[in-house]
Amino acid sequence: QPTSHGALQTVAVAVAAALAGSVPHIARGSGPALDHMVRRVLTVGFAAVCFQPLYNSGGFGDLTRQGPYYAALLLLLLALTALCDAVLAALMARARTHHPFGPLLREELRALLGIGSAVCATGAVIALGVAVAGLWALPVFCVPLLLTHLSFRRYAAVRTTYGQTIASLARATEIAGYTPPGHARRVAELSRAVGRELGLSGPDLTVLEYAALMHDIGQLSLVDPVPEGATALLPVAEQRRIALLGGAVVRQTGVPAAVAVVVERQADPYREQPLPARIVRAVNAYDDLTGEGAGEGAGASGALSALERLRLGTAHDYQPEVVESLARVLSRGGLTSGGAG
C-alpha cells in the first residue's frame, strides 16, 4: 500500500530510537557511543533517501506487480546500504586509530558476510511481518532479538576476560625479571598495527595479538635469563630452542593451536613461517634493538638504526614487506625509543 511519510520522518524515528536506546547507558554513567549512533542514523538516512521518494511517487509501481524484480531491487538497495555502512565504519575507525583506510574497509566488508547479512535479513522479515500482522509484529520480533543481544553481551564479556587472562599470563616473564616491563604489550600493539597494514583482520588479528603477547613465555624455562630479555640478539639455534619451549607452554594454556604455532615458528627463516610469525619476529626484534640494553641509542636515531638492521636481515630472517609495513606504521606514529612508536 502507498505510504505518505518521507525520508525525513524515517530519519526522525531512527534518531528518536537511538536517543531512547542511549538512556540505559546514561543511567549507568557511561554515556552513549556517539560515533556508533551517528553511523546508524546516517545509514538509515541513506536507505530512506534512496527508497522512500521513489516509492511514494509511484516510481516502483510497475516493479511492485512483478515480485522477482521488486525483490531484486530491494536486495540491491540492501547491498548499497550495507556498503555505505561499511564505508562510514571504516572512516570513523580511520579517524579514531589513524590506521590505513584500505585494510579497515576490507575488514568491515568481510564482517558484512556475517552480521551484515543477518541484519539485512532480519529487517526484511520484520517488514514482511508488519505488512501481514500489523505493528504487533514488532514486539514479537524484538523479544528474541533482545535475548540474542543479551547472549552476545555475555559472550563478549567472556572474550574480554579471556583476553585479560592471556595478558596477565604474558606478564609472567616481566614479573620474573626475564623481559623488560611493557615489552609484551608493546610487541602486541605494534604487531596488531602491522597486521592491519598487511590486510589481516578478525580471527587472524586475534591470533597475532595473542601470539605476540606470549612470544617470550619460553624464557620461563631458562635457568639463566637472557640479558634484557632480548632474544633477537641471541644465536639462531638458541632463539629456536626458546621458541619451541614457548610453544610447548602455550599449548598447555588452552589457547587456539594457531597461537602455539606462531610462537614455535617465530625464530624460523621467514620463508618457512606463517605471516603472523613473520610479523612477531620483526616487531620483537625491533623492540629488542631499541630497548634499554641494546646499546642502539635513544630516540629516532635508535629506531632508525634498528629498522636498518632489520632491512639488512631481509635476505633470510625478516620478510621485506613486513619490515616496510613496520616502517610505515612507525612513521605515522612517530619514531620513539623503546619500540613504543
Rank of each mutant, 00 (worst) to 15 (best):
R110I: 03
Y318G: 06
A79M: 10
L19D: 01
R281Y: 00
H183T: 07
L307N: 00
A17P: 00
D204M: 10
D317P: 00
M214S: 12
T173W: 02
A211M: 05
E324N: 05
P256F: 13
R240T: 15
L91V: 02
L150S: 07
L213F: 13
R153I: 06
A7V: 05
A82D: 14
G177S: 02
G58Q: 06
P24Y: 08
S325I: 05
V87D: 01
H183K: 15
L78G: 11
L80R: 08
P181M: 08
E189M: 04
G334C: 04
T3Y: 07
L326M: 10
E324T: 13
P53A: 01
A230G: 03
P139Q: 06
A93E: 15
A298D: 09
V261S: 14
G202Y: 09
R332Q: 11
P139G: 07
S191Y: 02
F101G: 00
L145N: 07
Q319I: 00
V49G: 01
R94S: 03
A124Q: 03
S30R: 15
F51Y: 15
A71M: 14
I217R: 05
R241M: 12
N284R: 09
V255H: 12
T231P: 00
G67P: 06
L91H: 01
V125A: 14
R28E: 12
G302E: 02
A7G: 02
A14R: 00
T10R: 09
G129R: 01
A260P: 11
A260L: 12
A327G: 08
D268L: 15
L109A: 13
A172L: 14
A230R: 14
E228S: 13
E264K: 10
A230H: 05
I26W: 13
G31H: 09
Q9M: 05
R153Y: 03
Q1T: 13
V23W: 02
P68K: 10
A79E: 08
A170Y: 06
A248C: 11
L169R: 15
S301I: 01
G302A: 12
V15A: 15
L91T: 02
R196T: 12
N56D: 06
A133H: 08
T160F: 11
V283S: 09
A89C: 08
A327P: 00
L200N: 11
L34N: 04
G333T: 04
R171T: 05
M214Q: 10
S30F: 04
G293D: 03
